[in-house]
Design a protein around this nucleic acid. Structure first.
Length: 270
DNA sequence: CCCGGAACCTGAAGGC
DNA sequence: TGCCTTCAGGTTCCGG
């Protein structure tokens, strides 16, 4: 599932196919994917040039000439695929198409239709619901400590709150808590200073390593060239139902926390 | 602020 | 083989 490392990888690898190109037309094959709807979207973007690509949390931000932005959220099963030249048949599950100059295209595919491509005049609506970027220099252990203070819910659930920290999802929250040897049910504000520091380091190292491995291909995630990421091969607990802890050999627990599957080692994370 | 639950969707996997 | 149920989990919204 796309979390920060997967979104970062998609952004980086789709960049050469979009940067500097003119958008001739946006096409919606599943109407709800585009907001505003296709006709209105096209009135505003056709002929504009892509001037930049960036990522904030799990959003890909496409900057356009004229001061407009397109945000892409992959949600559960979305992906972008680069295509050199126009083809007559779209791949299965294509929900939207970026038509570019010279007949090039970028497909937005999404089995479950949760993903969204929004046209924005300002990034405020996105930025105001996101906490700090975990890999930026200003994300320090002190900042993490402040974000967790006063939060009495389980640390696992609090880490998934995008307003606390942007970009961490279910898989990497499980991996970071394992690396920091923290029980996912611990109240977020009960962590000692040393534990917060350990968690801060664990979050950064888990995300860095996953980006190096081009994301985790569990279920439907794929890179823009169609290949898979390798980060799932290094998971210690996430999605490892019925397996044992690589550190101590204890069976990995799967427990619902706030309706979300949580994988952890009951021995190492006691 | 905290929490639970539903909604949005489809395909894979497991049970019978 | 085939029907039915469950599971997957990012985000928003609604109600208590």
């Amino acid at each position: 599932m796309p979390e920060l490392p997967e979104v970062e990888t998609v952004k980086n690898e789709i960049m050469p196919h979009l940067l500097g190109k003119k958008i001739t037309r946006m096409e919606a094959l599943w109407a709800k994917t585009l907001c505003p709807p296709e006709t209105e979207f096209n009135k505003l973007v056709s002929g504009l040039q892509v001037t930049g690509l960036s990522r904030r949390g799990k959003y890909i931000i496409i900057s356009l000439s004229g001061g407009l932005f397109i945000s892409v959220h992959l949600k559960m099963s979305g992906g972008l695929t680069a295509v050199k030249a126009e083809t007559e048949q779209f791949p299965r599950f294509t929900r939207a198409v970026f038509h570019l100059e010279n007949g090039e295209q970028v497909y937005f595919t999404d089995i479950r239709k949760f993903g969204r491509i929004n046209l924005l005049t300002s990034l405020d609506t996105i930025l105001e619901k996101l906490g700090p970027e975990p890999l930026e220099g200003d994300f320090t252990p002190e900042v993490l400590g402040k974000r967790l203070s006063g939060r009495k819910g389980p640390i696992k659930a609090v880490l998934l709150d995008q307003k606390v920290l942007a970009g961490v999802g279910n898989m990497y929250a499980d991996e970071a808590l394992f690396k920091a040897c923290l029980n996912p049910l611990r109240p977020a504000d009960s962590l000692s200073k040393a534990e917060v520091t350990k968690l801060h380091l664990a979050i950064q190292s888990v995300l860095h390593k996953a980006i190096q491995n081009k994301g985790a291909s569990v279920s439907t995630y794929h890179r823009p060239d169609g290949s898979k990421g390798g980060a799932q091969l290094e998971f210690n607990v996430a999605h490892r139902r019925g397996e044992v802890c690589p550190e101590c050999g204890a069976p990995i627990n799967r427990q619902l926390i706030r309706q979300r599957a949580c994988y952890y080692c009951p021995h190492c994370q006691s």
